[in-house]
Simulated assay, not measured.
Amino acid sequence: MSSIDPVVSFNDLAITHPCGSKTAEPGWGRDRETSLALRDHELWLVWGGRGWMRDRHNQTHELRPGFCAWMRPGGIYDAGTSDTQPLGFTYIHFTGSFSTEPPEFFEVADLAFTDLATRRIIESIDRATPDRWGESARANPATLTLLQAVLLDLLHTPARQDRGPHETALTTLAAQMRHDPASSISIAQMAEDLGVSAAHFSRLFRQRFGKSPQQYRVAARIERACHELKESSHAVSRIADLLGYADAFAFSKQFKQFTGRSPSAYRKGQS
Rank of each mutant, 00 (worst) to 15 (best):
I239A: 01
K211L: 12
G134V: 01
A169I: 00
D5I: 15
E33M: 06
C19M: 15
H93K: 00
D83P: 04
V8C: 12
I92D: 03
Q59M: 15
F249K: 00
A246Y: 14
P26T: 08
F201G: 03
I222N: 01
D12W: 13
A169S: 08
V218L: 08
R261M: 10
A182M: 07
Q148W: 13
R54C: 08
H57Y: 13
F98P: 03
A265Q: 05
M1S: 13
T259V: 11
R208A: 07
R163F: 01
S184V: 06
Y245I: 04
L242V: 06
F98Q: 14
A139Q: 15
E135L: 05
K268H: 15
G49A: 11
G75I: 07
E192H: 07
G164S: 12
R120Q: 11
M190K: 01
R206D: 04
N11S: 01
V46K: 06
A137D: 06
F106D: 01
C19K: 00
A235T: 14
P65T: 02
P263Y: 04
R72P: 00
P165Q: 12
Y77E: 00
S264I: 14
D12C: 09
P130H: 11
V108A: 05
A220S: 12
M53T: 11
K268D: 00
F201V: 01
E228M: 11
L152A: 07
I4R: 15
L229I: 12
G210A: 06
G29P: 01
D131F: 15
L154F: 03
A128N: 13
F251W: 08
T168W: 05
R208S: 05
R206Y: 08
D55P: 04
S252M: 10
L36T: 10
G74E: 14
E192R: 07
G195Y: 06
P130F: 12
M177K: 02
A199P: 14
R163G: 00
A182E: 04
T259A: 10
N11M: 09
Q59P: 05
K211Q: 07
H156N: 13
L111E: 08
R119C: 15
E135R: 09
T259G: 10
V196T: 13
K22E: 08
T95A: 05
P6H: 10
E101P: 01
R54Q: 14
A250M: 11
S232L: 09
P165S: 07
L43Q: 04
G75S: 08
K268F: 10
N11A: 12
A169H: 02
S3A: 07
G195V: 03
G51V: 03
I239W: 07
R238G: 07
L45M: 07
